[in-house]
Write a protein that binds this DNA or RNA. Sequence first.
DNA 1: CTGAAAGCGCTTACAG
DNA 2: CTGAAAGCGCTTACAG
Lengths: 337, 337
Amino acid sequence: MVTMQDVAERAGVTKQTVSNVVRGRGAVGPATAARVRAAVEELGYTPNLVARSLATGATRAVGLFVPTATVPFYAHIVEEVEDVLDEHGYHLLLCTTRLDGERAKRHLAGLTSRSVDALLIAGDRDLIDHLPLLAEASFPVALCAWETDTPDRFPVVTIDYERAGHLAGRHLRELGHERVAVLASPDHAPRVAGFRRAFAADGLTVPDTAVHLAPEPTPAGGFTAATAALAADPGITALFATHDVLALGALEAARVTGRSVPHDLSIVGHDDNPETGLARPALTSIAIPTREMAREAVELLLRALGASGTPANSLQLLRPELVVRDSTGPVGGRPVR
Amino acid sequence: MVTMQDVAERAGVTKQTVSNVVRGRGAVGPATAARVRAAVEELGYTPNLVARSLATGATRAVGLFVPTATVPFYAHIVEEVEDVLDEHGYHLLLCTTRLDGERAKRHLAGLTSRSVDALLIAGDRDLIDHLPLLAEASFPVALCAWETDTPDRFPVVTIDYERAGHLAGRHLRELGHERVAVLASPDHAPRVAGFRRAFAADGLTVPDTAVHLAPEPTPAGGFTAATAALAADPGITALFATHDVLALGALEAARVTGRSVPHDLSIVGHDDNPETGLARPALTSIAIPTREMAREAVELLLRALGASGTPANSLQLLRPELVVRDSTGPVGGRPVR
DNA sequence: CTGAAAGCGCTTACAG
DNA sequence: CTGAAAGCGCTTACAG
C-alpha cells in the first residue's frame, strides 16, 4: 500500500505538504501542488481513511438502526438517509434489529466505540430498553419514525400520527359516515385516537368494540380483522385501516361478504404505500412524508456535527396528507335507480 | 474519552496488559486480569475501534452495493448479508446505487481506502463499468445476484436463472401447453433461454414474436405486455412472466379480456416474491434461494479474510425451485360439463 | 506472566 | 509558503 510518505518522497516535499494538497487546505505553491498531484497520480495514492479518522477523531460514517429493511416504509428511510449522507460525504452503517433486543444491544455496543460520528434510530422499539446506554454517547443521537412512547432524552423527528388518524376520520365524516370500524395494529394507538377525535367533534363515538386488532400487519391480518368487524356490526358503512396492507385484506373481506367498495363500504388506508397501488378500487389513504422525515432527521444530526456537538432536543412533527381515490364515497352511495 | 492508558494506570499495569485482557488473548495472571477488568468497569472503558483498525489493518466492516433497498429481493439480500456479518462480528456499510453510475463510482472510491475489509456487489449493473477499479483492490471482492454478462474477474455466487426458466417451461409442457408467450424484462434473457429450451426439447419453438418486453418491472408493465401478447396471438394457453410483478399485471389482463385463470390461461411467475402472496388465484412461480445466495457470498468473502486474502475465483450457481399453486393447469382445462 | 519500544498513516499546531 | 515534531489509541513482536 502506498502511503503519504511515499508520495512526499516522490514529489520531494514533506508529507505535511502532501496532506495539505490532498485535502485542498493550507497554503501550497501552485508548482509544488502540481508536483504532488503528479506523484499521487503516478503512485496511485489514496489516503488511508482509518488513519485520518484516528487523527481527526471523525469517521465520516453515520449509523442507522431500523427494525427491518424488507418493509417498504423502512426501505425508503434507508435510501433517504443514505442520500443525505452521500450529499455530505458520509457513509452509512446499517443495523436492522429484527425484533431482537439482544442483537440490537450488541450492535449498539459495537457502534458506540467511536466507529460512527452520529446515530439515527428509526422507529426501533427493539432498542427502546437500551436507549439509556446512549445517554453518555460521545456522538449525537436522534430518533425518527416514532409513534408511541416517544423518548424525551433525544431529539425526535416523526410523523403527526394523531393528525393522520384525524384526517381519515374527518374524511369519512364529511362523506356522512356514522357507523364505522377501525382495523388497527397494536402500535397504532395515536392514529386511532385521532380518528376518534374526528367523530367526537360531531358528538359521535367510535366504541372500543368497533376497534379490531389485526393479528399481524399483513393482508391476511387485515382480512381477519375486517371479517370480525363486519360480523360484529354488519351495519357499518366505512372502515379505517391503520395500515395499507390491512386495507388490502379489508378489500378482500368486502368482496367475500358481497359488499361493493365504495358503494356499500368505504375503506381508507394509511401510509399511501406505493407498493399497494395495484389495489382495486384504488385506495384512499393517508400519505406520510417518509423521506422528508428521514431527511430532516439526518440533517439535524449533521448540523449538530458541524456545530456544538449536541443537537437541540426537540420534537418535530411532519404532517401527513389525505389522498382521496376510489375506495371511499358518500354513505349510502349505491346508485338507487 | 477514557483510554487504555487510563485503565492501565488505574489497575497499576501497563497498557499492553490491558490490551491482552480486553481481547482475551495473551497470558495474563488471574489476579491481574481481575484488577484490569475492575478498572475497565469503573472507568467505563470501551476500546477505540478506529485505533485498533489502524494498528491491525482490519476494520471489521464489509461493504455491500445493491441497486436499491426498496425492492424486496434486494432488501432480503441486505438482511441476510447483515445476519452473516453479525454472526462473525462484522459491521455492514451499505451503498445503494439507484441507477446512478457516478454515485456508484464515488462510493466505490470512498470504500476502497481501507474503510472496509471486503466488498460484496449484489446485481449492480450501475457498477459494472467501474469494476476494473476493483482489480487492484487490497481486499476481497465478490459478486452475487448477477444474471447476465457475469464478470469473470471476481468470484460470483448467483442463481441458475437459465434453469429457472427451464423449470417454468417444463412445467407448462407437462401440462400440455404448446402455444405460449413470455413477458420479460430486458435483463432476463437467461430465463427466457431456459424457458425456450424446455419447449425445444419437445421439438416446439417459442418464436421471438411470442416474447414481449415489459416497459417497466411493475404490474402496469406486465399488464401492457400481457395485453400485447394476447392481442398478438389470442390462441395462447399459457404465459411465463419472468418476474412476479409482471405476472400480477398478466392476471389483470386475463380478467379484462374475459379469460379465466388457469382454465383459459395458465400463468407462471418468477421469484416467488412473498409480497405477491395476495394474488388471486395464487401464483405458480419459481422460487429463488435469495437468502442462501447472499449467505454463500458473504461467507466466501469472510473465509477469504481468514485465509489467503483472495477468494478462489469461481462461479457458484444456486438452484431455483418450481412452486406450483393455482395459476397453472392443464391445457384446455375448462370444465366441459 | 509482564513491561518498554516501535509503528499503523494520518493531522494538528507551531516554527521558520 | 514549507518543514520537523508530537500525537491520535491501539497492537505487534521482543525482552525480561
